[in-house]
């Protein structure tokens, strides 16, 4: 797992290698912290382009700041091949302004499940079926069906962490007065210009 790009729009890239190769379906369940969101419309679009098959069981408001949103899960489906590459586009939410310049955001490795394998191994759990990725209607999210998936262990679970810029609360001391001052000076200035022009025009009318 690695992160691509920098800034508020990034991509989470998963590279899985299977040995031996079996004819299974694989499901990645990624925990997304509240400071990150996925753009469901973007995912639908990528689904149409056959780039990624995902299922997000909730409505994700992309405008909310971190403090008003909660963590959620993204389900990603793929067929097991020798190596599986999935790229999930992520976006970062705004954080509440603070006196730090950056906030740390951490993303843990996903859980990986298999299903429809020739040989079943271990205890199964009920998770959304592969066809849930076809649901684009939000009212039907709840009606997604569940299938049995078996968790599989892998060698290197990691935690990615990044720094996200945060508004500087100390700037408030000058942003507030200057913003208001400028908006009012501009208002007074335009008032003067408007009245001057209006006098000029009405003189001509008379």
């Amino acid at each position: 797992m690695e992160i691509l790009n920098s800034g508020f729009h990034r991509e989470l890239k998963y590279s899985l290698k299977f040995a031996p190769v079996i004819s299974c379906e694989v499901l990645l369940v990624q925990e997304i912290p509240s400071s990150v969101y996925v753009d469901v419309d973007q995912l639908f679009n990528l689904n149409k382009l056959n780039k990624i098959k995902t299922f997000v069981p909730y409505y994700i408001d992309v405008e909310l700041p971190t403090s008003k949103s909660s963590p959620f899960k993204v389900y990603m489906f793929e067929n097991v091949r020798k190596s599986v590459n999935i790229t999930l586009p992520l976006h970062f939410r705004y954080h509440e302004p603070s006196d730090k310049k950056f906030n740390r955001v951490e993303i843990e490795s996903p859980k990986i499940y298999l299903s429809n394998c020739p040989v079943s191994r271990g205890q199964g759990v009920l998770l959304p079926c592969r066809n849930s990725s076809e649901i684009t209607d939000f009212l039907e999210l709840a009606s997604a069906s569940f299938c049995e998936w078996t968790e599989t262990q892998y060698s290197t679970p990691i935690t990615l962490s990044f720094l996200i810029p945060v508004g500087n609360i100390k700037s408030y001391a000058f942003v507030l007065p200057i913003t208001i001052f400028i908006s009012w000076i501009a208002c007074l200035f335009l008032t003067y210009v408007i009245i001057k022009k209006s006098r000029e025009i009405s003189k001509k009318v008379l």
Binding site: N5, S6, G7, F8, H9, K101, F102, F162, L163, I164, P165, V166, G167, N168, S171, V175, I178, T179, I182, S183, A186
Partner: peptide, 22 residues
């Protein structure tokens, strides 16, 4: 710089917004 480079440029964006307003 903020959006794609992850550099904290909020103060500069504010300045640019103010400048655009003027």
């Amino acid at each position: 710089f903020l959006e794609f480079k992850g550099i904290n440029s909020f103060d500069f964006i504010w300045l640019a917004s103010t400048f655009f307003f003027i």
